[in-house]
């Protein structure tokens, strides 16, 4: 696959270029990397890389729909992840390094790292299977989608989700705003992700 040529750094540049160069305000971009399970032969999409931009009203909508218990849980997970990355023991809750509340979209992006899609499951899997972009705009449409990930996205404040198949995987874009399908962004994603070499940038 051409994506075998993408290393982590060029993936990050590509995702960043999509988000920062877009006319629309996208909250995040994720590259789901395609592979085949050697044991079962099943097609698998798993986390390749992601770029989180956040949304302009992150600060105003810190809590979103989350409860105090949700926040406590999210902060504890972030403390543990910080510790895992740094190698230092996690700080006690009262000397918290993660004192800012974890927004719904931050949390959705974070839990995405642990997700995968088998044999065309989910919106990313569907896009890969059909080799065409899947675009869902509107909270109501996401909430009623036949896809757990789309419903989860809506529950965490995402209003628009687009999945665009590219060489070796699928690029997923999410926004807290309402963005209708446009060919410009899908074309841009395809161009950025099918150049197929590590010459980028």
């Amino acid at each position: 696959s051409s994506t075998a040529c993408f290393n982590q750094e060029t993936l990050q540049y590509r995702l960043q270029a999509v988000i920062e160069g877009a006319r629309e305000s996208w909250t995040y971009a994720i590259f789901w990397q395609s592979s085949v399970d050697a044991a079962t032969g099943a097609s698998l999409l798993a986390w390749g890389d992601g770029y989180y931009r956040g949304c302009d009203d992150d600060k105003r909508k810190l809590r979103g729909a989350s409860t105090a218990a949700d926040q406590e849980h999210r902060k504890r997970v972030l403390r543990e992840l910080n510790s895992l990355i740094s190698g230092a023991p996690p700080p006690a809750a009262d000397e918290d390094a993660v004192d800012e509340e974890v927004t719904d979209t931050e949390w959705f992006f974070l839990v995405s790292m642990a997700q995968s899609f088998v044999d065309g499951a989910g919106l990313p899997g569907h896009a890969l299977l059909t080799a065409s972009a899947a675009w869902v705009a509107g909270a109501d449409r996401l909430a009623s989608a036949a896809c757990e990930r789309a419903r989860q996205a809506q529950a965490f404040g995402i209003q628009t989700m687009a999945c665009i198949p590219v060489g070796g995987g699928v690029v997923e874009l999410g926004s807290t705003g309402l963005i209708y399908h446009n060919a410009e962004i899908t074309g841009k994603v395809r161009a950025l992700f099918t150049s197929g070499t590590d010459a980028f940038p």
Partner: peptide, 29 residues
């Protein structure tokens, strides 16, 4: 959990670092 795949670990590290920067910046408050 102690053995994250490298792609996830790098993504996670980047996300956590950027998050710290984002919330540290007084101009964004």
């Amino acid at each position: 959990e102690g053995d994250l795949p490298i792609a996830r670990k790098k993504s996670l590290q980047r996300f956590l670092e950027k998050r710290k920067e984002r919330y540290r910046s007084p101009t964004e408050l």
